[in-house]
Design a protein around this nucleic acid. Structure first.
Length: 496
RNA sequence: GGUCCUGUGGCCGAGUGGCUAGGCAGAGCUCUGCAAAAGCUUGUACAGCGGUUCGAAUCCGCUCGGGACCUCCA
């Protein structure tokens, strides 16, 4: 088994990954709040964990990957007041909240599919775990770590820390500092301490998403769902919890507090946070208005883009950086990525055609052989080093060079020996397809090539070269297509 | 204001005490009917100033620039 090292936000250093149960990995990733379209920044986070999931699986772990859908409880605006995001959209569009949820869940799935992300093993939703969340609130009240106030229930930070815990340990916050910087927000009066966070919120009568509870009609606090769903499916303690940097505080901090409060145990062994995607050096975010929707990118329909970029180009582009670094999004960078990806893709296509042949005349080229073996090993080493996909790709380009040489007949397979040759080909394909999750994309405009064929057809016909004409017709026929030779134009159609 | 991250060649982006990252772009060569593709060669890069060290892009200090979190955000 590969020795994987992961940067753990909790310890602020790279740690050797050792699962709680040997051979098995439980991993939880905070999914989207489905109140509008996912943007490219969101995609980067899910890509990070897609790579992790693929890699863990590939090196032999049995992985249970849970990624939630937040469909209630995430509030608009600051603090613990404000409307529910989904409720707000539903009101604006005058449709059922569940219609909002369904629409953007579909969009989310569609986008992730385009980027070739593997689906998680379990994709639970907050509204589907209302019972668990209410039970958790009750439990926290029973344990004295939460209190009811005016129909809402808050987590008691002072009480929690008084029991020897450390709220703030994940994000490196100090309670006093946090207190000093607390702004005046509505609804603070209900809390014993401004830092206390809602685990259950009373719903105003006009609030469209609400459930009955021992504290009246209301809805769960945002942080609670992840605690309930992660522990339900992965256990009181599980291996990896991931999400974007911006969830570190307060979301993940609160999850730890809730988890510890409920079970007395730290819920997560390794916390992983992927960094932000930036545009002109600034974080891409919905509120800043500088976010790109995947669909805009694929169509090139955005003022900051001067052409369209395919999903795999973008995937490749993101893989060129390490997940803990910010990544800046620009036309130049994307164009470079497009070219590089296509080069790699051509190598992938070509690799499938390469066949080993013995040749006793050809001596083994030890230098090349060693370089290939080092590249293969280097690929694993790179991913083992906290998923350094940038370095892993660099190894792929070394492998690509030899694949191209073989393809161009600049290098004899026998010069590598059967073993190295075969491992070059098979590893390259596994790395490309299975671990990095790249794939061939059909040309969007194969129609253009078709029209070129028809143009040739027209010319041959004009020159009465009927042999060629028939040949072209046969190509079409072999693909269930026919050429329609009309008076005013030449066209093709599916054979009926 | 507090906490933290960051500044790498024309562009993107790894690295983090001594060993060529890589990609894109540029230049030259080989191959080639022409091209393309492919291969080869080619870059005195590490914000500035000082310090530690036999040796620093890498560690320390200061200065300047950029960013994140502290409030919804992946």
């Amino acid at each position: 088994m590969q020795k994987l090292k992961i940067y753990n936000t909790l310890s602020r250093q790279k740690e050797e990954f050792e699962p709680i149960t040997p051979g098995y990995v439980g991993m939880y990733v905070c999914g989207p709040t489905v109140y509008n379209n996912v943007h490219l920044g969101n995609v980067r986070t899910f890509l990070t964990f897609d790579i992790l999931y693929r890699y863990l699986t590939n090196i032999g772990y049995k992985v249970r990957y849970v990624r939630n859908i937040t469909d209630v409880g995430h509030l608009v605006g600051d603090g613990d007041e404000g409307e529910d995001k989904i409720g707000k959209m539903a009101k604006l569009e005058k449709i059922e909240p569940m219609e909002i949820v369904q629409r953007y869940t579909n969009d989310f799935h569609h986008v992730l599919e385009q980027f070739n992300f593997l689906p998680p093993n379990i994709e639970p939703s907050a509204t589907g775990h209302m019972v668990e969340q209410i039970e958790a609130v009750k439990d926290l009240i029973d344990k004295g770590l939460a209190y009811e106030s005016n129909g809402s229930v808050y987590f008691d930070i002072n009480k929690y820390n008084g029991e020897g815990n450390n709220y703030g340990k994940l994000s490196g916050r100090i309670l006093e500092d946090l207190l000093n910087e607390t702004r005046e927000l509505d609804g603070q009066a209900e809390k014993r301490n401004p830092l206390d966070f809602a685990i259950w919120k009373k719903a105003a009568p006009e609030h469209i998403m609400q459930w009955p509870s021992p504290w009246g009609m209301g809805f769960p606090g945002w942080h609670l769902e992840c605690t309930c769903m992660s522990t339900k499916y992965l256990g009181k303690q599980f291996d990896i919890h991931g999400g974007g940097m911006d969830l570190k505080f307060p979301h993940h901090e609160c999850e730890i507090a809730q988890g510890v409060g409920l079970t007395g145990q730290d819920p997560v062994k390794y916390w992983m946070h992927s960094n932000m995607l930036t545009v002109n050096g600034q974080k891409m975010s919905k509120s800043l208005g500088n976010s790109f929707l995947p669909a805009e990118l694929f169509a090139g329909a955005h003022p900051l883009l001067d052409q369209a970029y395919s999903p795999m180009t973008v995937r490749f582009f993101m893989l060129q950086s390490q997940y803990r670094s910010t990544l800046d999004f620009s036309n130049d960078a994307l164009k470079a990525a497009q070219k590089a990806f296509r080069r790699l893709l051509n190598g992938f296509r070509v690799s499938k055609t390469l066949v080993y042949s013995e040749n006793p005349e050809v001596a083994i080229d030890e230098k090349k052989k060693t370089e290939i073996e080092k590249a293969i090993e280097g690929f694993y080493e790179a991913l083992n080093d906290d998923l350094n996909t940038a370095v892993a790709l660099a190894q792929m380009f070394t492998m690509l060079k030899y694949i191209n040489m073989l393809y161009m007949n600049q290098l004899q397979p026998a010069a590598l020996g059967r073993e190295t040759f075969e491992s070059l080909i098979s590893k390259f394909e596994i790395f490309f397809e299975k671990i990095l999750g790249l794939k061939e994309e059909k040309a969007q405009n194969d129609e253009v090539v078709l029209l070129g064929m028809l143009e040739l057809y027209r010319e041959y016909k004009l020159n009465q070269q009927y042999e060629k004409v028939d040949q072209i017709r046969n190509y079409f026929k072999a693909n269930n297509m026919v050429i329609k030779d009309l008076k005013h134009r030449i066209d093709w159609a599916w054979e009926e």
